[in-house]
Amino acid sequence: MKLYYTPGACSLSPHIALKEAGIPHELVKVDLRTKTLASGEDYSKINPKGQVPALALDNGDLLTEGPVIVQVIADKAADKKLAPANGTPERYRLQEWLTFISAEVHKTFSPLFNPALTDEAKQVFRDRLAGKFRYLDSKLAGQDFLMGQQFTVADGYLYTMLRWADRMKVDLSAFPHLTAYKERVAARPQVQAAVQAEA
């Protein structure tokens, strides 16, 4: 497998999944500003969406959406229990979390990266994020991970977003369960390995 990534981007989520799954993979760094690889190759010829992550499978197929990519990775290492079995109520719950993180958290962060937006406009999105984090904080009370006591690919994705909170100066101090969760995920050796590989 080959993961196309950009340091600090949402591609950290499938990178964490690959590390946790123990699946051999190649990392290919993408410059998102120029849409080029280190070799100078035009990334848009590989992924016309021009975004990361992208995962090239061994059969030549290319997947380009993070929530799908992490489920494929989890299914290829089912013994690691990074996702419940397909077709189970628990798998639908995992998909619900992945969708929430993608549609509600990830997309709410996007405007904060836009230098053209005023600080007042960005504050609207920070306030929206606070509401999402309040919900997550309530759900994490009394459990280690989003799905209970088992780490899943949804946790790698949420952790990636919580790293963005630091970067965008979104204060998490009002959310003790979420803050403890972030520290718990950050302490995992494979999470640390993915972060260090991208540093």
Score class of each variant (00 low, 15 high):
M1L: 12
K2S: 09
Y4P: 01
Y4I: 02
Y5K: 07
H15C: 08
G22R: 05
P24I: 05
H25R: 02
E26K: 13
E26G: 10
K29Y: 07
V30T: 11
K35A: 11
A38T: 14
A38Y: 03
S39W: 08
E41Y: 11
K49Q: 12
K49M: 13
Q51N: 08
Q51G: 00
A54E: 01
A54L: 01
L55G: 02
L57N: 09
D58F: 02
D61G: 07
V68I: 15
V70Q: 03
I73D: 05
I73Q: 04
A74F: 06
A74C: 08
D75K: 09
A77T: 02
A77P: 00
A78F: 10
K80F: 06
K80P: 06
K81I: 00
P84M: 09
A85I: 11
G87E: 08
P89V: 07
P89S: 03
R91E: 07
R93C: 03
Q95E: 15
T99R: 13
I101E: 02
I101Q: 05
E104F: 12
V105C: 11
V105M: 10
L112P: 08
N114V: 07
N114A: 12
N114F: 08
P115E: 09
P115Q: 09
A116R: 13
E120F: 07
A121S: 14
V124Y: 12
F125L: 01
R126K: 15
R126F: 06
D127N: 13
D127H: 10
R128G: 14
L129M: 02
K132S: 14
S138K: 13
K139H: 12
L140V: 11
G142C: 09
G142L: 07
G142I: 08
Q143P: 02
Q143Y: 10
F145Q: 03
G148F: 08
Q149A: 15
T152C: 07
A154N: 01
L158E: 04
T160F: 05
M161R: 00
W164R: 01
A165G: 08
A165S: 12
V170Y: 03
F175L: 11
P176A: 12
H177D: 12
H177L: 00
H177M: 03
L178N: 04
L178S: 05
L178Y: 09
T179L: 14
Y181I: 07
A186N: 11
P189G: 09
Q190E: 15
V191I: 15
Q192M: 14
A193D: 09
A194V: 07
V195M: 12
A199R: 13
